[in-house]
Nucleic acid binder design. Structure first.
Ligand SMILES: Nc1ccn([C@H]2C[C@H](O)[C@@H](COP(=O)(O)OP(=O)(O)OP(=O)(O)O)O2)c(=O)n1
Ligand SMILES: [Mg+2]
Ligand SMILES: [Mg+2]
Length: 596
DNA sequence: GCGGATCAC
DNA sequence: TATGGTGATCCGC
């Protein structure tokens, strides 16, 4: 996606049932031939030839021919629940995706990863059995009970949080520019990859991160819009300007979603959360022409889950009581919890934990604590209790970006051709880093082979840099040029002035090497000088060169004052302090923990 | 400090 | 024919 820095999110939805508030207007969804018919199945799946390839049901198989049932077990990311997918024939989608993927290197790599996850799950189950057979779970049950009690004591029901998430954001932006698009199934991206799709296209199973050529099999009439980030950024700031009126300290998490603490706003207006959510949605739609959905709850995690329940153009209010929250997690599939993805869902499922509330049940909380790392189990228990961040975002944490990277996919290359790609990438990275006034010393090269296997190679430099030359020199040493790659990328992290380095700053400055000086290239006359930001010798005079830096910055965005030399530039507050912090928690990675 | 894996948009 | 780009975190070693 775009520059906006970290944020979490996930869509997915819980049983749409319980919702007290439905989407507003009748809206889209109405006409536009819903879904695809059975007969289209064969067409979508037949490669080239005109074989009948009859639908699965047809029992009259010809002689020894065996039906390929592989699709049943192919759980691609495209078949899980997602806003706009209720009426989709999931088995049909699964089958079409499978049939159009199965012989590709990409597919084989997915299979490899899935098998790896399976091994991990089995290892976990093995450890569970070991614990059971040795009757060691009792101790964990006890410590889990204590942990749960401690967590429960932190429950904070005093805030009202809104999570505002734009509907089919990129696609809606294009529909705004060309209203004729609004009536037809449309996706943003191209035959290679789709960023998102409007809700008409979603009826066919078309969705984010799906290759366009597969989407075309699902929906032959699908129209594509090439992406236009400038457009999305413009619309995003329009939306944020509105949201800031309801909470000047709102948190932006990516271009299309924000968290608002409206506790005091509600107080001041003497309004109900329902009414305010409605008001904000109307306001956004009136001024931008875009629809959004809002989730309302006492903390950010729950609000985020709720914003998906009545998408598109809807809202969901989770009442602010312990009972309501626990009832909610009791029917909440773990997959809906932000941070629990495909793999973690499989792991939990293997343990018989399917609903969030299961994670804290008397019978399994101990298991969670026993099998997962301290961080992971803490996060899982919190999810089960419906606890999340509800206070002001940490001033300190997530204060800024921690890395910056550029990567590109291309027709498989090696040798000289690959060297050229690497050079291009380093040039782009230099651009981006100079724009932001960043220099860093951890360099990582990312390589993806034609088999889609990803490898990274990294090292720490003895100096900070953002010069394309320096980065290229070291990236080259980290890269394998002797086999075909389909992607290469470079990431820089460990920024000058970052926390890790704060206390050490003076010491570092004494011990860190200087980047090897440039051979003082001729340059014209006498005018050149050594620019600290570029970390290289430039031909212009100092004044000229600094002007150039200035112009360069202004061209792209407005920066706050004080940007002398290499100091880190600050975005000139879009609305207030829209810090793009990932408000969630530290979920992710739940690996087997060392016993004891 | 490094490399792999997972997750989110 | 054909499966993206950016950023973050966590864990084991
Ligand atoms: N794998 C992804 C997921 C999303 N996006 C982009 C396109 C989306 O428009 C935008 C916002 O992501 P959402 O998950 O909020 O999805 P949408 O806004 O498109 O749809 P929804 O109505 O489900 O929120 O981010 C992307 O480029 N790649
Ligand atoms: Mg959205
Ligand atoms: Mg979103």
């Amino acid at each position: 996606m775009a520059s906006e820095a970290g944020g979490r999110a996930s869509r997915e939805e819980v049983a749409r049932a319980m919702s007290p508030h439905g989407g507003g207007e009748p809206d889209m969804a109405a006409e536009a031939g819903g879904g695809a018919s059975r007969e289209e199945v064969a067409r979508a799946m037949s490669h080239g030839g005109g074989e009948p390839d009859m639908a699965a049901e047809s029992s009259g198989r010809v002689d020894g021919e065996k039906e390929d049932e592989g699709w049943r077990s192919y759980e691609s990311v495209f078949t899980n629940q997602k806003a706009g997918m209720d009426d989709v024939d999931r088995d049909w989608v699964k089958k079409v995706v499978y049939e159009n993927s199965k012989n590709s290197p990409h597919f084989r790599n997915e299979q490899r990863k899935a098998e790896q996850a399976t091994r991990r799950i089995q290892e976990m189950l093995r450890r569970k059995e070991a614990l059971l057979s040795q009757n060691q779970l009792a101790g964990y049950d006890q410590s889990a009970a204590k942990l749960v009690a401690e967590l429960e004591a932190t429950r904070d029901l005093s805030h009202w949080w809104f999570h505002v998430d734009m509907d089919a954001f990129y696609a809606s932006c294009h529909e705004l520019m060309d209203p004729t698009l609004a009536g037809v199934p449309m996706a943003v991206g191209g035959v290679g990859m789709i960023s998102t799709a409007n809700y008409q296209a979603r009826k066919y199973g078309v969705r984010s991160a799906m290759p366009g050529f597969i989407a075309l099999k699902l929906c032959p009439d699908l129209k594509f819009c090439p992406s236009d980030f400038a457009l999305y950024k413009t619309k995003a700031s329009e939306v944020r300007a509105i949201l800031a009126q309801y909470d000047p300290n709102f948190l932006a998490a990516g271009l299309d979603e924000s968290y608002l603490d409206v506790t005091s706003c509600l107080e001041a207006r003497g309004e109900s959360p329902d009414a305010l959510a409605r008001c904000i949605r109307d306001h956004v739609r009136r001024e931008t022409g875009l629809t959004c959905s809002i989730g309302v709850a006492c903390n950010r995690m729950l609000a985020k889950i709720c914003s998906d329940l009545n998408k598109p153009n809807g809202e969901f209010v989770l009442q602010r009581s312990r009972e309501a929250v626990l009832a909610f997690t009791s029917s909440l599939p773990v997959r809906k919890v932000p941070g629990i993805g495909k793999v973690t869902e499989r792991i939990l499922s293997g343990l018989g934990l399917n609903l969030a509330r299961d994670l804290v049940s008397r019978s399994s909380a101990g298991l969670v604590v026993a099998l997962f790392s301290e961080k992971a189990s803490g996060a899982l228990l919190r999810a089960g209790l419906g606890l999340g961040r509800s206070g002001a975002p940490d001033e300190d944490a997530g204060a800024g970006r921690k890395g910056i990277s550029v990567e590109r996919t291309f027709r498989p290359l090696r040798g000289k051709g690959l060297e050229a790609k690497l050079a291009e990438i380093c040039a782009k990275l230099e651009d981006a880093m100079m724009d932001k006034g960043l220099r860093a010393r951890h360099i990582t090269v990312k390589m993806k082979g034609t088999d889609f296997v990803v490898r990274t190679k990294s090292k720490t430099l003895p100096f900070y840099t953002n010069s394309a030359e320096a980065m290229l020199q070291h990236a080259t040493k980290l890269t394998s040029f002797d086999s075909d790659l389909r992607l290469i990328g470079v990431r820089m992290a460990g920024f000058e002035g970052d926390a890790v380095e704060q206390g050490q700053a003076t010491l570092d400055s004494l011990f860190l090497d200087r980047e090897p000086e440039e051979p003082a290239v001729s340059s014209v006359g006498g005018g050149g000088y050594f620019c600290e930001t570029c970390k290289k010798h430039v031909a212009e005079t100092k004044a000229e060169h600094e002007d150039w830096h200035l112009a360069r910055s202004l061209q792209r965005e407005v920066w706050s004052a004080g940007g002398l030399g290499a100091s880190r530039k600050q975005a000139a507050l879009p609305s207030k302090k829209a810090k793009c912090v990932g408000g969630m928690d530290l979920f992710v990675t739940k690996r087997p923990r060392k016993m004891e």
